[in-house]
């Protein structure tokens, strides 16, 4: 009897913690509907521009910066790296079934059925190196960020269409969702507190961007960084801002978060690399 009760407890605990009742399609609908109610005059396609979609003054500054985009050098570096053969003579292209101009970026993140995990573009690029007997790069190595920028640039306009193919993928999605809504750090703030409920409000001198559109434009050149970086670097920064100890870039926590966040952006188009404050 005790065994049965314990099993029941475990089932209930597991399903409630990791969303046995998670319905991604329903979540997506509610998430996007929330933003369309919050910003009724904002066209859906504009969310990919973050703060620049909701604040006219910031937008005009951004448009001026975009006349000479600071991420161009990174795209060039990425292009050279992409075309440079590995020591075995192969290139990165050998690891991807899609040509560059068909939008490799738009296939990530995705659920890897064989390895049962979320694969991000950066992870796929590093695994490609390892498969070709090259050392993996640091996650924020300019070569890797450059490759990501190059591929993102050639994926502009492609729609985000993350799929959740099975229960294991759904579990990863549920973990990403849970992370997004969980309060963290000494400031006791969740991702959603800032970027859902308080999107468009000011936090000191900055305007909080809406979470809808967040995954569309990475890597980004940030004035604060004085350089270009990926989405996971941004996650690290956000966690540090709320005084929570950040997780490893490309680790399971942030990869699942990226999976959830990109799924919430389904229907929008990729527009990276981009410029942000």
């Amino acid at each position: 009897m005790k065994g049965i009760l314990f099993t029941c407890f475990l089932v209930i605990a597991t399903t409630s913690a990791f969303g046995g009742d998670v319905n991604p399609a329903q979540d997506l609908n509610a998430f996007q509907k929330y933003f369309s109610s919050k910003f009724p005059n904002l066209p859906f396609r504009e969310y990919i521009n973050g703060v620049y979609a909701i604040d006219a003054e910031s937008r005009s500054q951004w448009q001026e910066i975009e006349e000479f985009p600071p991420y161009e050098l990174s795209i060039s570096e990425g292009e050279s790296e992409w075309k440079k053969p590995f020591s075995n003579g192969k290139t990165y292209q050998s690891c991807f079934p899609w040509p560059v101009n068909e939008g490799i970026r738009s296939h990530y993140p995705h659920w890897d059925v064989e390895h049962k995990r979320v694969v991000t573009l950066e992870r796929a690029l590093n695994e490609c190196r390892e498969a070709n007997s090259e050392k993996p790069l640091e996650w924020e190595d300019s070569k890797l960020v450059g490759l990501s920028a190059y591929l993102a640039f050639h994926s502009r306009g492609k729609a985000m269409n993350v799929t959740i193919p099975n229960e294991e993928a759904k579990h990863a999605y549920a973990e990403g969702k849970h992370f997004f809504y969980t309060k963290r750090g000494q400031l006791n703030v969740s991702c959603a507190d800032c970027h859902v409920y308080n999107a468009s409000q000011k936090i000191r001198a900055d305007i909080l961007s809406p979470a809808l559109g967040h995954a569309s434009h990475f890597p980004v050149y940030r004035s604060e960084w004085e350089g270009i970086g990926g989405l996971h670097r941004r996650f690290v920064g956000c966690n540090k801002n709320v005084r929570a100890k950040p997780f490893q870039e490309q680790g399971v926590e942030y990869s699942n978060l990226e999976y959830f966040l990109t799924y919430m952006n389904n229907g929008l188009s990729f527009n990276g690399p981009a410029v942000r404050k």
Partner: peptide
């Protein structure tokens, strides 16, 4: 105290989800 509060934060957020 910080560690205890951090753990309590985890306990309180076990069922965190959207509020809309």
């Amino acid at each position: 105290l910080q560690s205890r509060m951090a753990y309590r934060q985890w306990e309180e957020n076990k069922n965190a989800g959207p509020r809309f």
